[in-house]
């Protein structure tokens, strides 16, 4: 009889890790994602200058081309934007904002969605119908419409200066609130299937409370689809934020995210300063792509019907 294995040992010998290490696409995506995460979340350590501090940059350096071009300066490896900020530093900071909003919004969606989905699926009946209709109503508004509505009201009511301070939490709230029905529906569907299984009956026979049965027994059994949609939703949230920023309702120019950098650069693209738009665009595409590829891999792995032998 084999001795009990430690958690780490179990993980090291698991199919999960084996499958992951033998899927080149997933592994590459993961490495790229980790690099981007480290660079983005550690922006203050990796960026040569601080784009949030106006005293560190000079308007005279505006629209400098990248270092590898003619006239490029070694000090600005990817050129500068219209205000003379180093593009490389600004992008790192921008990616940090995008990532924080992306993950924050997904946490919020997941929290609301899981609670609503569990309650809806477990209790059923009228409560279920009411909550699911609410989700339908929420889904019938486009994310952008809700977001534009809220941020427009907010900017009008509190002024742009105040808006700059609370832009990040506000965007998390808006994007998080707009997409919770995705989670609620997925969780509800799994709960409906799980609650008919005998272990739920057994938990009731043991005399456990409803709350305990829901969160402790049913929830862990519904998590695999939640993980899969989470990856896709992170990518979606980052895109939503970029799109909102692009139309000017996301992050302000003083605290740019990838989306607002693309937006700002767009105005200068015809005057030849293509790098202001292109580099943040590439980073955004790569970031969203690797998250989606990882999500795909996870979905394939967790779906036994798609087993690829």
């Amino acid at each position: 009889m084999q001795p009990t294995r430690s958690r780490w040992r179990r993980f090291r010998e698991s199919f999960f890790l084996h499958d992951f290490l033998h899927d080149r696409l997933a592994l590459t995506s993961f490495i790229v994602l980790v690099i981007l995460l480290v660079l983005g979340l550690g922006a203050p350590f990796f960026a040569p200058s601080n784009p949030y501090d106006p005293s560190t940059y000079d308007l005279l350096n505006a629209e400098q081309p990248p270092a590898f071009m003619e006239n490029g300066q070694a000090q600005f490896p990817l050129g500068t934007d219209a205000q003379g900020r180093d593009m490389y530093s600004t992008m790192l900071y921008g990616m940090r904002v995008s990532l924080i909003i992306g993950f924050g919004a997904v946490l919020m969606q997941a929290f609301i969605g899981i609670v609503v989905g569990l309650i809806s699926g477990y209790f059923g009946g009228r409560l279920d119908s009411a909550l699911m209709r609410l989700a339908d109503v929420q889904l019938s508004f486009s994310t952008y419409m809700v977001a534009i509505f809220i941020s427009a009201i907010f900017q009008a009511a509190f002024g742009v200066a105040m808006y700059e301070k609370i832009a990040i939490p506000l965007l998390i709230l808006v994007i998080g609130f707009a997409e919770w029905p995705q989670y609620a529906r997925t969780v509800r569907a799994s709960v409906l299937a799980e609650k008919k299984k005998e272990y739920v009956e057994a938990a009731r026979v043991i005399g456990l409370s409803k709350r305990r049965i829901m969160f402790r027994h049913i929830l862990p059994n519904t998590l695999s689809p939640v993980f899969v949609i989470s990856t896709i939703q992170v990518a979606n949230a980052i895109m939503s934020e970029a799109a909102l920023s692009f139309v000017g309702l996301g992050m302000p120019v003083t605290m740019p995210s990838l989306g607002s950098l693309i937006n700002v650069g767009f105005e200068y693209i015809f005057s030849g300063s293509w790098w202001i738009t292109l580099f943040p665009g590439i980073v955004l595409v790569v970031l969203v792509l690797v998250i989606n590829l990882l999500g795909d891999w996870l979905r394939d792995y967790l779906n036994p019907k798609l087993y690829k032998g």
Partner: peptide, 8 residues
């Protein structure tokens, strides 16, 4: 198989 919770 059904009465024990598979994830605990």
């Amino acid at each position: 198989m059904m009465t024990l919770n598979p994830v605990l």
